[in-house]
Design a protein around this nucleic acid. Structure first.
Lengths: 235, 235
DNA sequence: CCAAAAGTGTTAAAACTACACCCATGA
DNA sequence: TCATGGGTGTAGTTTTAACACTTTTGG
């Protein structure tokens, strides 16, 4: 708290030369989903300068009447139409020249959205929105490549300890689908028997009793993630 | 990038009513050290309103000509005089009313400083600076209690996977001192033999060859943390 | 010689890895 | 009946956890 000094009580005062500076603050979103067994990323084509016509992460300015988390949720809903999904703050990037217009710091978030129930809408300043497989993404504007790298690193570490993988799936899913999520994020193959043993031993899944059939092979049992069991202390 | 729009190319434009808002941005520091085998926290007594006379974390406003990391390092140096220490961004807190004066978001950092080589200096706006054992800290101003809790959670998780504990010790240290760091952070006792086995197996320590004697018991061998071994791939 | 912390090994339990075949279904 | 993915167990290895005594020093 060394220098929180001489602040006016009004928002946005600019008169006092010794007052602290104000900077623009954005949220940028690394939105993941799973499509055709591959981890995908939502990117937008910028409709305005700077970087007009180039790809970037979705995001926008934080308003004065909303928290940063609320800004992130709002942007997420604007881009994807979803709201009840896994969203976590990633890191705050504040290099001086990261935005060519003026000093802008950005609080990056990442989100997991289930691939069904998605309606992409190009929002106001974006010319286009699309999903792209992680391995095929184009170079992004600003420092967004760095942000995506950091998000990937985070989820690769986190998925082993914290049950976030379910966020990429529908409510009910098969064990093979869940294994696909882990493989897509970790980027390599897992042993089927060991995976099932470990996941079931964690005791976070409940079998729904129904199966996913209709395909030309044996039907797979469906499971749900039990938040209750996750929050309850292990017996 | 949905709404990065209508920004002037000059810093701090305030004329356009539709321009995005600017907010004040601070860094707040959770600075840890080890004193008498206990984890300690640096707190300052605020010399100015709001919360004048109450305790808070050290921190200050981010300037336009420095990155957020630089602001954090600057504040850290101002408070403690140290610069080459472990410093990591923790989380960004942006509740609307977290500062009673105006909208202020803060990027929190935590740092590990070795307890020797410390010269505390009450900086400009602080009436006093002091170390306090984690368990005995007074309630803090703003949302700083929450920030400290979050920092504790982070380091308790991180210490098991990442070699950050060395940051609280001098360059050379005994295994018992290192074990004290782990115990102080984790808040409970570890088995001496298992601890030594695991730490030495990690292969990150090199024995210096000298011992710390002069006490009325057997002298302890001194070790150094080998950054080289940490960065090199395990053989 | 005594008090104090340094240092050291073994055993049992648990977790992890590698690995191959039969099952149920739709076409 | 066949192609396809679903489903299951075991054995070897590694990692973890529990536990107690001898050593070296200074006072």
């Amino acid at each position: 708290m060394a220098t929180r000094t001489k602040a006016s009580s009004l928002p946005q005062p600019v008169s006092d030369a010794t007052a602290h500076p104000r900077v623009a603050v954005t949220v940028d979103l690394v939105i993941f989903t799973l499509r055709e067994r591959a981890l995908n990323l939502l990117i937008v084509e910028r409709g305005i300068e700077p970087f007009k016509g180039r790809w970037a992460l979705p995001g926008g300015f934080v308003r004065l009447d909303e928290t940063i988390d609320e800004a992130a949720r709002r942007e997420l809903a604007e881009e994807t139409g979803v709201s009840q999904v896994y969203l976590e703050q990633l890191y705050t990037f504040g290099d001086i020249e990261r935005d060519p217009r003026e000093r802008v710091i950005t609080v990056a978030y990442y989100a997991f959205v289930p691939s069904q129930s998605l309606e992409l809408k190009a929002s106001t300043d974006a010319a286009a929105v699309r999903w792209v497989a992680i391995g095929e993404r184009p170079p992004l504007s600003f420092d967004h490549d760095r942000i995506v790298e950091y998000a990937l690193e985070r989820i690769r570490n986190k998925i082993m300890y914290v049950p976030i993988a379910f966020g990429l799936l529908a409510n009910e899913f098969t064990l093979t689908e869940l294994q696909n999520v882990y493989e897509a994020i970790l980027g390599d193959a897992l042993d089927k028997r060991n995976f099932r043993k470990k996941i079931l031993a964690s005791d976070l899944l409940v079998e729904t009793g129904s199966v996913r059939g209709g395909e030309r092979h044996r039907p797979a049992a469906l499971y749900r993630f039990s938040r209750a069991r996750f929050e309850a202390p292990r017996p």
